[in-house]
Design a protein around this nucleic acid. Structure first.
Lengths: 346, 346
DNA sequence: CATTTGCGTGAACGCGTGTTTATGATTTCT
DNA sequence: AGAAATCATAAACACGCGTTCACGCAAATG
C-alpha cells in the first residue's frame, strides 16, 4: 500500500554516478566538482529523495532528536506554562534541525517508568534530553548525566553547576521576590506574607528563600504565621488560604504568591471569606499567567519569560550535542514586575 | 565520553550462542527451547541490553513512533485543551509501546514547512501521524493519506469518511448545541444568540450549523444580528462582544459561546459595558475549560471529554499501524451539559 | 619528456538487527 | 536398525548510508 521510498543507490544509478558520490553530495564534501554535484542534486530533487534516518544513524550519525520529558505533578497537563515551554522547545529545536520526542513521566519512583526513560536514550539513541518539572536531584537524571548523556534541566539551585553534559537554566526567583517585596514596601506595606510553592521543587525552595532575603534586605521581618504552605496549583492556593482563614490568624496586608495560579485560588478562598482584593489585602503573583491580565482584578505579578528560557536551554543542549567541547553553560532569565490592580497603597 | 552500548553480538558471545539465537529470543520465536531462552535472557538482563532501534528499523521493523503535528493558530500554544490532548495522546501511545514525535506547524501554506512535515514521514519513517487543529481538507494532509500513510484527525464533518488509512474522531457539536439551546429554552429564553467560532475549522462550522438546527428543533428562530462572528480565543470573544456592544444592537437574553475561552473574553467585554452575568444576559460556554468552574460566575457549559477522544484516536491509529486490515473507524464523543451559575431563569 | 602532485570517483567495509537458508544433531517411525 | 522427520542453531544475506582506501587520470613540475 504505502509507496516505497527511493534510496541512494537508485539516485546514483539515475545520475550515472556511484553511491559514494551521492553520499558525498548530500554531506557537502568539498571534493566533488560543481557540475557533478548539480547533476546529482537534480535527480535528488526530481525524486524528492531524503536519506533514511535509521540508516544514517546506523552509519554513525546522530538522531537529531532530543527527548522532552515532562514530569507530571498534576501540573504539567494542566498548566499553560508547561505548554508554552513545550512549544518553545519544539520550535527552537526545529529551527536547528532537531525534532522532539515527547514523553510524560508520572511516577519517578517507578522503576519500570524510569527504565522506559532510559530506553529512550539507549534504544532510540536520542542525542540529548530535556526534563521539565523534575524534583531536586532526581536520581535517575543524575545517573543519565553520569553515563555521559546530555541533559538539560531547569534548576534554581545550580548556578554554575553546569558540567560538560549537564545544561542548566534558571529564572531568577531571588530577584523576582526582591521586586515584589520592594514594590509592596514602596506602597507602605510592612506586613507581608507568602503562599509558598512546592518545597520539593527547586523553584519552591528558592522562592521562599528569596522572599526571606528580600524581606531582610528591605529592613522587614517576616512572621512565621504568614509563611503559608502551598504548592503550585490553583487548588493549592485555595486550600492554603482556606485553612489560613479558618485558623483565625490575622491577615497580613499583602501576600506574595508562589505563582499566578495559586493567586487565583487564594483569591477565590479569600473572597469566600468576604475579603476584597486589593481593598483588604494586596496580592502579587508570579509568572504572569496568560489569564492574569484578564483576571478580576488584573493581577500585579512578576513576569518570567519562560519561552526565552527554554529557547536558551534548547539551543544550549543542541550546542553541546554538536560540540563536545562546548563550554559549561549558565543562563538566568531576568524576571520583571508587571503592575496591575491587585495591590493598593496603604 | 558516552558509554557505548552493548550489541547483540556481544550478548551472543557471552551467552555462548549465535547472534541469530539472541534475535530469536528477543522476538519471541517459538523454536527456541526454554533453557536456551533463559540463558540468553539472563545475559540480556545483566547487561541491560536493548536492541538498537535504528538497526531494527533498517531491518524492516516499524519505528513505533507516531508524529503529532499541532497546527498553530494562536490556539495551540495557549490553549490548555490542546495540552490535555497532547498528554492523552502521549500517554495512550506509551501504553501501547509507541513514542510521540511532536511538531508545531505555524503556516500550512509554507511549502518549506510542509516539506518538513513530509520529511518526518519519509526520512524518519514514523508509522503514522496525528494532526491537531487542522483546517478543513488541508491539502498536504490529503496528500499524505493518498500516499498511503496512516493519518488521524479530528474532523466534525467526516462521519464515516474513515478510509483504510484515514482515522477520524468527532465530538458531537450538534448534540452539544442541542443541549445548550434546550437548556436555555427550559429557562424560558427565546432570544438566543451565539458567538461563533473560526469558520475555517470544522468545529466552528458544525457548531454554528448545530446551533441553527437546535433553534429550529426547539421551535425558535434565530436573529442574524445575534449570530456574532468570533473565533476560539479569549480575545476573539472580547472583540466580538465589544464590537457588538458598540454597534448599538439590542442584546439577546442568552448567548451560547464557541468555547469557554471565548466566553471569558465575551464576559469581560460585557462587563466593561455594565452588563451583568447572569442578571442581564445568560451565558453558556463550550468545552468545560479547567478554569470555568472557578470563574466568576462559575460557567454553565457543554463539557467535552477531549482526553477520551484522543485516547480513541491514538488507539485507532496504532490499530491501523499494526493491522493493515483494521476496519474503517468512527468514534464520536458525546458532550454533556454542566450547569453552573451563568444562566438565569426568565 | 619523465615524474610528481592533486583531484575525482568507485569499490569495499562497517554500523546492528531480522530473517531465510542450510547443516548437523536428535528423535520418531516402520 | 535404518530411514525419515523434527529440531536447534549457525552461517549468510539484506536493509541504506557514511567513510576510508586505492586507483586512474589530468595537470603541474623538473
Amino acid at each position: 500500500m504505502r509507496k516505497t521510498e527511493i534510496s541512494s543507490v537508485e539516485i546514483a544509478k539515475l545520475a550515472g554516478v556511484s553511491r559514494s558520490t551521492v553520499s558525498r553530495v548530500i554531506n557537502n564534501y568539498s571534493n566533488v566538482p560543481p557540475e557533478t554535484r548539480e547533476k546529482v542534486m537534480k535527480v535528488i530533487r526530481e525524486h524528492h529523495y531524503v536519506p533514511n534516518l535509521s540508516a544514517q544513524v546506523l552509519a554513525g550519525k546522530g538522531t537529531r532528536t532530543i527527548g522532552l520529558f515532562m514530569i507530571e505533578t498534576e501540573q504539567v497537563s494542566r498548566d499553560i506554562l508547561s505548554n508554552m515551554m513545550l512549544v518553545s522547545i519544539i520550535e527552537n529545536a526545529s529551527i536547528n534541525g532537531y525534532y522532539v520526542l515527547t514523553s510524560i513521566i508520572r511516577d519517578t519512583a517507578d522503576r519500570d517508568i524510569i527504565r522506559g526513560v532510559k530506553d529512550i536514550f539507549y534504544q532510540r539513541r536520542i542525542d540529548g534530553g530535556i526534563f521539565i518539572g523534575a524534583a531536586n536531584e532526581e536520581p535517575f537524571i543524575e545517573e543519565l548525566i553520569a553515563e555521559g548523556y546530555i541533559v538539560g534541566v531547569v534548576d534554581q539551585r545550580l548556578p554554575g553547576r553546569s558540567e560538560a553534559n549537564r545544561v542548566v537554566v534558571n529564572f531568577d526567583n531571588d530577584y523576582g521576590m526582591m521586586l515584589a517585596v520592594k514594590y509592596l514596601r514602596s506602597l507602605n506595606h510592612t506586613e507581608i506574607g507568602v503562599v509558598a510553592g512546592d518545597m520539593k521543587r527547586s523553584s519552591g525552595e528558592t522562592k521562599l528563600e528569596g522572599f526571606k532575603e528580600a524581606m531582610r534586605h528591605n529592613g522587614l521581618r517576616w512572621n512565621e504565621d504568614w509563611i503559608i504552605p502551598g504548592g503550585f496549583h490553583e487548588s493549592d492556593g485555595y486550600e492554603a488560604m482556606r485553612s489560613f482563614m479558618r485558623s483565625g490568624k490575622r491577615l497580613p496586608t499583602a501576600i506574595v504568591m508562589a505563582n499566578d495560579s495559586v493567586a487565583f485560588g487564594a483569591i477565590r478562598a479569600l473572597r469566600e471569606h468576604g475579603v476584597e482584593i486589593p481593598k483588604d489585602v494586596s496580592i502579587v503573583g508570579f509568572d504572569d499567567h496568560e489569564l492574569s491580565s484578564r483576571f478580576q482584578p488584573p493581577l500585579t505579578t512578576i513576569k518570567v519569560d519562560f519561552g526565552a528560557m527554554m529557547k536558551e536551554l534548547t539551543e544550549a543542549v543542541i550546542g553541546h550535542i554538536e560540540d563536545d567541547e562546548a563550554e559549561a553553560f549558565e543562563y538566568t532569565v531576568r524576571s520583571e514586575l508587571v503592575v496591575r490592580d491587585s495591590c493598593r497603597k496603604l
